[in-house]
Write a protein that binds this DNA or RNA. Structure first.
Length: 154
DNA sequence: GCCAACGTTGGC
DNA sequence: GCCAACGTTGGC
């Protein structure tokens, strides 16, 4: 099992939005970055655990805990001319872009702010610190468990 | 709103 | 294949 951090702007799609979906489950679509795509297509597996991060707000925070419920499959929004994520280079044979499905498990009792992550000695290597733009980030088990602990998950 | 980081594009 | 120009992201 592996550990990940998924970023989202809450004004676009928040952890609460995910919790409000049927079965608290939704597609994680619209990712248009090749490194993140490779994680979605090749490495993220059913059962993997995911931290949900809110970016581009006054105090960015890790807010929730999710589980991967479907591994990578073609992101059909790339084929839809009406979608804001439409990519004219994508075809059914060569979809280019991939998505997974995630289910919200619980909100962190105490959301963990970026400034706390930045200060914590065990979290110095997290991509959030030096690769903040990557929207799908792999975490070590220690990093994942440390954030759960900071977030008050027992 | 600014700016640094960084990914993508396109000319050569 | 290099690299400058440009666009986007995201923290502050």
């Amino acid at each position: 099992m592996r550990y990940w951090l998924f970023k989202s702007e809450p004004g676009c799609f928040s952890f609460q939005d995910l919790q409000n979906c049927p079965d608290a489950t939704e597609h994680w679509d619209g990712v248009r970055n090749f490194q993140a795509r490779n994680f979605l297509r090749d490495e993220i597996a059913v059962g993997d655990r995911v931290l949900f991060y809110h970016s581009s707000i006054p105090q960015p925070v890790v807010v929730g805990l999710c589980r991967v419920v479907r591994a990578g499959y073609p992101d059909h929004t790339a084929l839809d001319p009406g979608s804001e994520h439409f990519d004219p280079k994508a075809t059914p044979d060569k979809p280019i872009w991939y998505m997974v499905d995630v289910r919200a498990e619980q909100a962190l009792p105490q959301p963990v702010p970026l400034e706390v992550i930045r200060e914590h000695p065990s979290l110095r290597q997290m991509p959030l610190i030096n690769r903040s733009r990557l929207s799908i980030q792999p975490l070590s088990e220690l990093e994942f468990e440390t954030i759960l602990q900071l977030g008050g998950v027992s």
